[in-house]
Amino acid sequence: MSDQSGKHDERIHPAARPFLWLDAPWLKSSMLWILLVLALGFAAIDLFHHRHEYVSLAETTGFYALWGFGSFVLAVMVGWFVIRGLLGRSEDYWDGEGDQ
């Protein structure tokens, strides 16, 4: 059985050893909350500071945060359901040419 954490894997690059915590389960599970705090933190600046923008719509409180979140979700959903759903094919579709 392979050592997924890599602590005892001698093939791990020495420069990577101090960063093996990046693969830790606790980090993966807490990443959502860390990013939520950061996103809300930056969005909350709008409550105390009025941004001056070229486009008046962008001066709305939380505009960039909402647009960023919505854009990302839209991109993923359209990619998943429209592109992969309708246009996805098996890897050997192009007469076994593959893509690599």
Partner: peptide, 9 residues
């Protein structure tokens, strides 16, 4: 704001 919200997404 844009990038952190997208990362959170």
């Amino acid at each position: 704001q844009l990038l952190m919200a997208a990362l959170f997404a």
